[in-house]
């Protein structure tokens, strides 16, 4: 994650955050495995096929889904296509720069994409117009407009909410519009290691002193669909297993709360 002038403070902050965590407390009063309150506004952009604005604490992202007819990939002639893109807008953070996606935004987009793809959330077989010739292409584009940590989970929440509300414009192909066929609900839960603690849904300060980040994406059935270890640092296998069970529990609660 980006460094900025806040990085200079991080040794002092780090000590403070570590001391707080020894008592099980975090800077904003959360417990280590507590997710920030998310506010999800579905249908935020009427011009999109589906959309959602997510506020996760002070992190804000807008996801928009567009669905257009196009060619399938040669190796999957009988499936629609899914693509995910994340834009870290310069308005969101002092060191974010305009221009082509950098490694940070590509990592976020690809981890979000893997969670959605591997959970088989969207029934891609139902998105064929003419086999091997024409299929629906689902574009998920996510704008990060305000950054206070944990982009992966904010973007996954926004993408999932937007996809659930999406309508495929079948009328453009002489058919009827239909709701995007959604089956599973993937939920990603990201944690960073600080000292010996794993803290869920890190804010920016916590990310800046991260000694390793891990994201675990699960579906309703408790199965693992995607994982990603990021940042410099390491985890023991016990810590990984703890992260997996935390993700399953927290993910279940999030699914109940936001996607019932």
């Amino acid at each position: 994650m980006p460094r900025d002038e806040l990085g200079i403070l991080s040794e002092i902050k780090r000590g403070y955050i570590l001391r707080q965590l020894k008592e099980g407390k975090r800077g904003d009063g959360r417990s280590p495995d507590q997710f920030r309150e998310a506010i999800i506004t579905v249908d935020y952009v009427k011009r999109a096929a589906g959309s959602a604005m997510v506020q996760l604490g002070r992190t804000k992202v807008v996801a928009g889904v567009k669905v257009e007819a196009g060619e399938p990939f040669p190796d999957t002639p009988n499936q629609g296509v899914l693509t995910t893109n994340v834009e870290l807008l310069p308005m969101a953070f002092p060191t974010f720069e305009a221009g082509p996606p950098n490694e940070g935004s590509i990592e976020v987009a690809r981890v979000v994409d893997r969670g959605i793809r591997e959970s088989k959330m969207i029934d891609l077989e139902a998105l064929v117009i003419e086999p091997a010739a024409k299929v629906w292409i689902v574009f998920i584009d996510i704008d990060v407009i305000d950054f206070d940590g944990n982009l992966i989970d904010a973007c996954t929440l926004a993408a999932v909410a937007a996809l659930r509300s999406a309508v495929v414009p079948g009328s453009a192909e002489g058919k009827e519009d239909f709701k995007l066929p959604v089956r599973n609900i993937p939920v990603s839960v990201t944690m960073v290691k600080i000292g010996d603690n794993l803290v869920v849904d890190p804010d920016l300060e916590e990310e800046q002193i991260s000694q390793g980040r891990i994201t675990v994406t699960t579906t309703e059935d408790g199965r693992l669909r995607a994982m990603q270890k990021g940042d410099v640092g390491w985890f023991t296998m016990e810590e990984i297993k703890k992260a997996i069970s935390t993700s399953a529990n927290v993910g279940k609660a999030l699914r109940e709360k936001y996607f019932r």
């Binding site: 793809r117 591997e118 199965r223 270890k229 023991t236």
Partner: peptide
């Protein structure tokens, strides 16, 4: 055995994950 890289995609139960690791 400190883990410095881990990625996963696909569909694994917890038992399968333990077996794989």
């Amino acid at each position: 055995n400190r883990i410095v890289l881990m990625q996963m995609d696909g569909d694994l139960t917890l038992e399968e994950f333990d077996q794989a690791t």
